[in-house]
Amino acid sequence: MTQHRLRLREGRCAGEELAEFVRSLARQAGLDPQQVYRLRLAADEITTNIVLHGYGDAGGVVEIEGEAGPDGVRLRIEDSAPPFDPHTHDPGPRLGAADPTEGPEGGFGLYLALRGLDYFAYDYVGGRNLNTLVVRRTSSGGTDGQDGRAGDR
């Protein structure tokens, strides 16, 4: 099991820095390209949501710890923004709309994030949001739940 850490500076959305962090872990774990893409997308959407909506103008640090092992990759994303459980976010009604470009903007990022993971868990401990993201090496990605979403076990 290999461990890595990434600290996103205050007020900055994740970009290439996070992409390379995920790619490096994925290489070690032997994920296929589609799994790498989904894990990057999930990590990007969750960290972007924290930076833009969790911290907002106040700013704050996002810490990401990653582990690569024979079973796959596990990321733990931590922040000290107000409590927010991504599970509580449901863009379902908009996804069924005839035209998703109608109506209020936004709302797709967390759906995409959870949809692409094999496992997701949220905890709020000691004033910190803890998001755990897993993509398993042997999985085809995002198919554990009956509706295709990552479950919280």
Binding site: P33, Q34, Y37, R38, L41, R94, L95, G96, A97, A98, D99, P100, T101, F108, Y111, L112, R115
Partner: peptide
């Protein structure tokens, strides 16, 4: 393909 999946999952392929 990966980009197409994102577009389809969110229903943007209808737009």
């Amino acid at each position: 393909p990966e980009v197409a999946e994102t577009i389809r999952l969110t229903g943007f392929d209808r737009s």
